[in-house]
Amino acid sequence: MTNAEQRKKQVESFIDTDAKKISWSGELKEDCGKLIIHTFNPDEVFQGIYRPFCKQNYYYNKDLNNRLYQMPKIFPNQNVENLAICVTGVGVVKDFSALIVNTIPDLCIQGAATAGQCFPLYTYEKQSDLGELFAINNTEKYTKKENIPNTILKDFQKKYQDKTINKEDIFYYIYGVLHFPEYKQRFAADLKKMLPHIPYTKDFWKFSKAGKELAYWHLNYETIELYELEEFKKDLFLNDEDYRVEKMTFGKNKNGIDKTIIIYNSKLT
């Protein structure tokens, strides 16, 4: 048995594999075997989005978070501003969907096994890794770069004969198209097999303005005035514990799923 194999065996016999305490990745086990110490840094606790409209604290640390992928280039820290459109992954079972975020999303933000992909408005590079070339704005130690190339901007301006169109307008146009029911229905088969392709529509501004307004509500849903509901708590004999969410699902009728009904838990529908 090699030293590495022996060390691995010792680690496996030593660690507590209770996932509620810590989820041991292969890299973390190797660090344990090498007696590498990781220190918790409260400044690396971010607010991310676990599922649509469901925020959750997230420890943004490459040592204790196994796979950060390209997130450090999209949301390098909490002080930079960015937007990203998250779409369901290729080949997943669930229907295609898109959601805009302004903070770190979970890999499967649209649901389990969706393995999504994000398309940001900007990307950030550390200035130590990238010089000032092509930079449009410096934010602390990062250089912000526009993610939509100038060639795409020129194509849209030429197509619609409108020089006032800018890259942010195109970003919201894309979001509007991705939510258009006819688009999702017509290209449903393609969206299962590949990432979305964005067509030109007859009216650019109609989709861009709709996408921008939709993005506003998807990002600022917590600021919306609550809809007043009349509760019959005494008649239902409910206490505070009865309002705990178990797993919200749509109801069913004779034709299948009924999206006018939401089952909150076993006591509330």
Score class of each variant (00 low, 15 high):
Met1Pro: 06
Asn3Lys: 07
Gln6Met: 03
Arg7Gly: 03
Lys8Ala: 12
Lys9Trp: 14
Asp16Phe: 00
Asp18Phe: 07
Gly26Trp: 02
Gly26Ile: 12
Glu27Ile: 05
Leu28Asp: 04
Cys32Asn: 14
Gly33Asn: 03
Gly33Lys: 04
Lys34Ile: 05
Leu35Trp: 02
Ile36Val: 08
Asn41Ser: 09
Pro42Ile: 02
Asp43Tyr: 08
Ile49Asn: 07
Phe53Lys: 14
Cys54Asn: 10
Cys54Ser: 05
Gln56Ala: 08
Asn57Cys: 08
Tyr58Ile: 13
Tyr59Val: 11
Asn61Trp: 10
Lys62Cys: 08
Asp63Cys: 01
Leu64Ala: 11
Asn65Asp: 15
Asn66Lys: 03
Gln70Pro: 00
Gln70Ala: 04
Pro72Ser: 13
Asn79Thr: 07
Asn79Pro: 04
Asn79Trp: 05
Val80Leu: 02
Glu81His: 15
Gly91Lys: 09
Val93Asp: 08
Asp95Phe: 07
Asp95Glu: 12
Phe96Met: 08
Ile100Lys: 02
Asn102Lys: 10
Gln110Arg: 06
Thr114Phe: 04
Gly116Asn: 00
Tyr122Ala: 03
Tyr122Pro: 01
Tyr124Trp: 11
Lys126Gly: 06
Gln127Asp: 14
Gln127Phe: 12
Leu130His: 02
Asn138Ser: 07
Asn138His: 00
Asn138Asp: 07
Tyr142Gly: 12
Tyr142Glu: 13
Lys144Ile: 14
Lys144Ala: 15
Lys145Met: 11
Ile148Gly: 00
Ile148Lys: 00
Pro149Ser: 11
Ile152Trp: 00
Asp155Asn: 13
Lys158Asp: 12
Gln161Cys: 03
Asp162Asn: 04
Lys163His: 10
Lys163Gln: 15
Lys167Cys: 15
Ile170Asp: 09
Phe171Met: 07
Tyr175Pro: 06
Leu178Ser: 00
Leu178Glu: 00
Leu178His: 02
Pro181Lys: 00
Glu182Arg: 05
Glu182Ile: 09
Tyr183Cys: 06
Phe187Cys: 05
Pro196Val: 14
His197Gly: 14
Ile198Tyr: 01
Ile198Met: 01
Tyr200Thr: 05
Thr201Glu: 03
Lys202Thr: 04
Asp203Phe: 13
Asp203Asn: 13
Ser208Leu: 09
Ala210Asp: 14
Lys212Gly: 13
Glu213Gln: 15
Leu214Gly: 11
Leu214His: 11
Leu219Ile: 14
Glu222His: 04
Glu228Cys: 09
Leu229Pro: 09
Tyr243Glu: 02
Lys247Glu: 09
Met248Arg: 01
Lys252Asn: 14
Asn255Gln: 15
Gly256Thr: 11
Asp258Cys: 03
Ile263Met: 04
Ile263Cys: 10
Thr269Pro: 15
